[in-house]
Design a protein around this nucleic acid. Structure first.
Length: 507
RNA sequence: GCGGGUGUAACUCAAUGGUAGAGUACCUGCCUUCCAAGCAGGCUACGUGGGUUCGAUUCCCAUCACCCGCUCCA
């Protein structure tokens, strides 16, 4: 079990799974590159997802949308405006608040200072409404009343965003006694901005997509009109997304450029809950089937107060990483929120006509949204193991065979007696179907261990007996167990092993 | 974004105000018939930019990156 990310980061670097982006220039915070083994692993994960969720199903189609879209898409989705809230920092308490959730209560007390001016106290309170904010403020105001007398009249209530800049210094933050510790509201827009065309003007601003989902909604009508699809059905997309995270952390877990595997599953409103339950279970099981078997994998339903305002139910598939329990995938029941928003902003009709029921309605959506990089990281963490073979410790990556970057390695036991030639012929044969590796250098034990660290599930070795009876040994990564198979059956044996079918010639 | 820590070879780590050493790994050769064996040889490093100094990997400043804690995570 991996208990320390440093070990994994080190192995990823050493074996070529993951490197810091543009490392020779010192890297870039929040960006990572996948090396030769990493790209195979991540690709296998994405391929498994696509195969299991799109190809193998009759009710799913795929899509590949552009990363830069008409900026109006992000107005409809709420990414421009709604979620780019200005934030306010408190210099004293180091707290950060949403500016729209701070209300300032300006009290005036009868006591006067040496200039004869009345004593004022501008107290900041937190809450979605002035009433909520007042609760906290009133206690503090009452304390002040003991010193300065009962306030004159009711306090004036000013939303922090409406505050005159000069008045900001008067405000006492929610967690301090001192005035003037709050900063001006600052925008934290998490979308990467760019310009379409050579001219950098406000009129041609565009954004790198912060999620793949909106491209699916924007194409809903196209798919319905041309795809010969009938409700219920889903649209799937795998692709890069970008979020200018304030604080990237935890290796590749929170990156500024990342890859998503998203499904928007459209259905009749009265079936949405059923489909939500279905996807919640199905998506969890997918991770289990691919090897996240330990109790580090969890399914957690959101509490009602955690839900986005448009969602009636959301569940997170979480994994207990060494740095904490974190989300791999969210399954959200989003109702008709997204299509309704896009109808409002685009003016286009995105309702669906059910031919059998002769009904027109706006489909409801269940959204299983997974992070490919997060899944990759979870599979890496889960696979990492240290055990002992013949009294020697080894590091082994126990990837599910479907996900392993290299499926098999082929070795000659020693570099003579025609063994390399025989081994290479087997290698050439296997390579047509699988990602396999050939190695004739060094001691055989060393070659096995090298493959263990790469997570290669099987090793085929040509020895002196091969020339006599045409068999080779096959070694299992996890158990180090070996048995012999005819070399002519090598390809079929590997196919079976990778598919979990019975092993030919097993003894 | 705040606070703390760390940056030396591919990896893990030393030492040092006078330009650096080990283990592992990697490469070449010999040997070797199944789990990191042995012998010989070889390659590779002071994150970046300033400053102090005759001279800086070492001291100072800044910056970048990573780690830990807070914060954030639509």
């Amino acid at each position: 079990m991996l208990d320390d990310m440093d070990k994994l980061v080190s192995l990823c670097k050493r074996r070529g799974f993951i490197f810091p982006s543009s490392e020779i220039y010192g890297g870039l915070n929040g960006f990572w590159d996948y090396g030769p083994l990493g790209v195979e692993l991540k690709r296998n994960i994405k391929d498994a997802w696509w195969r299991d969720n799109v190809r193998m199903r009759d009710d799913m189609v795929g899509l590949d949308c552009s990363i830069i879209m008409n900026p109006r898409v992000w107005e409809a989705s709420g990414h421009v405006g709604g979620f780019s809230d200005p934030m306010v920092d408190c210099r004293a308490s180091k707290e950060r608040y949403r500016a729209d959730q701070i209300f300032v209560f300006a009290y005036v007390y009868p006591a006067v200072n040496h200039k004869g001016e009345p004593t004022e106290a501008w107290l900041a309170g937190l809450g979605g409404t002035p009433e909520e904010a007042a609760e906290h403020v009133e206690k503090r105001a009452a304390k002040l009343a003991k010193r300065f007398g009962q306030p004159v009249g009711a306090p004036s209530i000013i939303p922090y965003l409406k505050l005159e800049p000069n008045d900001r210094d008067k405000v006492v933050g929610p967690a301090t006694e001192d005035r003037g510790t709050l900063t001006e509201p600052r925008a934290f827009n998490l979308m990467f901005k760019t310009f379409v065309g050579a001219l950098e003007s406000e009129s041609n601003v565009a954004y790198l997509r912060p999620e793949t989902a909106q491209g699916i909604f924007a194409n809903f009508k196209n798919v319905v009109d041309t795809g010969r699809v009938k409700l219920p059905f889903g649209i799937a997309q795998v692709g890069k997304s970008f979020r200018n995270e304030i604080n990237p952390r935890n290796f590749t877990f929170r990156s500024r450029e990342f890859e998503q595997m998203e499904i928007e599953f459209f259905c009749r409103p009265d079936q949405a809950q059923e489909w939500y339950d279905y996807w919640r279970k199905a998506r969890f099981q997918w991770y289990v089937d691919l090897g996240l078997k330990s109790d580090r994998l969890r399914l957690r339903d959101h509490d009602p107060d955690e839900l986005a305002f448009y969602s009636t139910a959301t569940a997170d598939i979480e994994y207990a990483f060494p740095f904490g329990v974190s989300e791999l995938e969210g399954i959200a029941h989003r109702g008709d929120y997204d299509l309704t928003q896009h109808m409002k902003f685009s003016g286009k009709d995105l309702t669906y006509f059910d031919e059998e029921r002769k009904e027109r309605f706006t489909p409801h959506v269940v959204e299983p949204s997974a992070g490919a990089d997060r899944a990759t990281l979870a599979f890496l963490c889960e696979a990492y193991a240290e055990d002992e073979v013949g009294g020697e410790s080894r590091t082994v990556m126990r990837f599910h065979p479907r996900l392993a970057p290299v499926k098999a390695a082929v070795f000659p036991l020693v570099k003579r007696d025609g063994m390399p030639e025989t081994a290479e012929a087997i290698y050439r044969d296997l390579k047509r179907r699988h990602n396999v590796f050939y190695d004739e250098k060094g001691a055989i034990g060393r070659r096995y261990r090298r493959q263990d660290e790469a997570g290669t599930p099987f090793c085929l070795t040509v020895d002196s007996q091969t020339a006599l009876d045409g068999t080779v040994t096959i070694r299992d990564r996890d158990s180090c167990r070996q048995w012999r198979i005819p070399k002519a059956d090598a390809c079929q044996a590997l196919d079976n092993l990778l598919d979990g079918l019975p092993i030919p010639g097993d003894a």
